[in-house]
Design a protein around this nucleic acid. Structure first.
Length: 490
RNA sequence: GCCCUCAUCGUCUAGGGGACUAGGACGUAAGCCUUUCAAGCUUAAGACCGGAGUUCGAAUCUCCGUGAGGGCACCA
């Protein structure tokens, strides 16, 4: 049997990173077995549908490279892939269940339901229309009374849900009532839609969060009523909020130890400057282990080893600090040019006019310092903004006394003004010599620190030589001249 | 309240009766290196939720607690 998995989000909000995680696992499984990965939009709750959410879902999957073989945009032999476009199908099968005695029309009004709930009727519904006489049903229908179609859940016994990760999970049937399959507006509930679609689309493994485990008995009984073979159920563990309680959600914004906002929406990861392949690598390490004590791997490598059966069933938190670590590894592998191009948009967003060639000069030195693209900002700001001229007291110290400092800056100024080849190696060599020569220690450090402050306005920056080359000869000389002026005339 | 799931270092995890002195990774700390900050290298601290049982032997199997999470809609 071919493996066919699906990702079936509701367009009720923007893509959540936990959804990406679930989609990734379904995708990896399909790819491992050479099967298909299907995208289906579950938009039957029209009241909660958010405009733009569907687009965001597709865009996010594309950004991550989680490609689907069938879906709303690409079509496929089992379409349509949007549930609101499959209405007749659900109606047809709901009616089939009614005709075959597995479901019935229920005319209970919202008021009646509310009253039952108030009276403490279990599940808020007492199955009052389950065995309603056929002629009475016809009568009510003739009167145009609105109704829903409810499933006849078994009244006694047990239902066993075979779960790939948890084994057989047994539920007593007295814990259920007759659930609505088709709403009065003609649209299906999740229970009907998911079973009909998964069957018709020949899905082999259904992956979803554990929050669905408790309703899986409905689905198991539905498959039975239809006489269909159920797919393999895979109830994935929840992703918890890293700090605080409950599952990871936007509603309870959490913060990391370092005080940063915990990212929840997929597009927040893009905006923060993470690489999609790094995020996927990170997610793949949660609830699944690549093996061989190896945590950095490509999705191609993951596909070779992945199997849903190996996924952990324990709830988990996302280890965000590992994302930073992994992302920094991926950044270090980038070519300077590509890195510069990747960083550029983040600088442009800050209003800087970016020259990628100029930026590229800094990248070999910078790549090792970035956990994510946005980290580049403080390191390269000196290229785009005037730096304050440091006060005199910042330009010398014990290891570099005032006269020596002045002398060193003079020499540096002359050297940079006249050196033929304005490249990192050449100026580095020259400036090192100047630094060493003018200090009581045998290190250039004391001088280079002051020079860094003059060039970048900061105590922390990429290596100064790179900074000077990237800034360019004239701007660098100007900044040194301004510093020199602080020493006054002598 | 009822039902379901889960439980190894701070975090993500390996392990599935003896190979466990419980392994790896991130993070943390220290040292080295050094042009600041990083990176890199070396080292360190750090865990089987508790209690019963099964067994010659339990992190591993069973039960009971406890804790955490989830579900009980004409929402998904």
């Amino acid at each position: 049997m071919t493996v066919r998995t699906r990702f079936a989000p509701s367009p009720t909000g923007y893509m959540h990173i936990g959804s990406v995680w679930a989609a990734l696992f379904a995708w990896l499984h399909a790819r491992h077995y050479g099967g298909q990965f299907i995208l289906r939009i579950e938009d039957t709750d029209t009241k909660r549908t958010v405009p733009g959410a569907q687009e965001n879902l597709l865009e996010t999957l594309r950004w991550f490279g989680l490609d689907w073989d069938e879906g709303p945009d690409v079509g496929g032999p089992y379409g349509p892939y949007i549930q609101t476009e499959r209405q007749e199908l659900y109606q047809k099968w709901a009616n089939w269940l009614v005709e075959n005695g597995h479901a019935y029309k229920c005319f209970a009004t919202p008021e009646e339901l509310a009253q039952m709930r108030e009276e403490g009727v279990p599940f808020g519904y007492d199955r009052r229309y389950r065995d309603f006489p056929a002629d009475k049903v016809a009568e009510l229908e003739a009167q145009g009374k609105p109704y829903v179609i409810r499933f006849k859940m078994p009244l006694e016994g047990e239902t066993v849900v075979p779960d790939l990760l948890r084994g057989d999970v047994t539920f007593n049937n007295d814990q259920f009532t007759d659930y609505v399959l088709l709403k009065s507006n003609g649209l299906p509930t999740y229970h009907l839609a998911v079973v009909v679609d998964d069957h018709l689309m020949e899905i082999s493994h259904i992956t979803r969060g554990v929050e669905w485990l408790n309703t899986a008995p409905i689905h198991v009984n539905l498959y039975q009523a239809f006489g269909w073979e159920a797919p393999v159920f895979v109830h994935l563990p929840v992703i918890l909020n890293p700090s605080g309680k409950g599952k990871l959600s936007k509603r309870h914004q959490a913060f990391t130890d370092s005080g940063e906002k915990v990212l929840v929406r997929a597009d927040e990861f893009m905006e923060a400057g993470y690489l999609p392949e790094a995020v996927l690598n990170f997610l793949a390490n949660v609830g699944w282990t690549f093996g061989d004590d190896q945590e950095k791997f490509s999705m191609e490598e993951a596909i070779e080893r992945f199997d849903l059966a190996d996924v952990s069933s324990s709830p988990t938190k996302l280890p965000y600090s590992k994302l930073d670590w992994l992302n920094s590894l991926y950044i270090q592998e980038m070519e300077p040019r590509a890195l510069a191009e990747a960083v550029a948009p983040f600088l442009e967003k800050e209003g800087y006019k970016v020259d990628v060639g100029q930026l590229e000069i800094l990248m070999p030195a910078l790549s090792v310092r970035l956990k994510k693209f946005t980290d580049a900002l403080p390191f390269v700001r000196f290229l785009y903004e005037e730096t304050p001229v440091p006060p005199l007291e910042k330009l010398w110290d014990k290891k570099l006394p005032l006269p020596a400092a002045q002398n060193a800056f003079r020499e540096a100024r002359n050297f940079l003004a006249t050196v033929d080849s304005f490249d990192v190696d050449t100026i580095g060599e020259g400036l090192m010599l100047i630094g060493v020569r003018n200090t009581s220690t045998d290190k250039a450090g004391p001088f280079l620190g002051k020079l860094r402050l003059v060039i970048t306005g900061q105590k922390v920056s990429p290596p100064v030589f790179e900074c000077i080359v990237a800034l360019g000869r004239l701007p660098s000389l100007e900044r040194i001249d301004a510093a020199l002026a602080q020493f006054g005339q002598d």
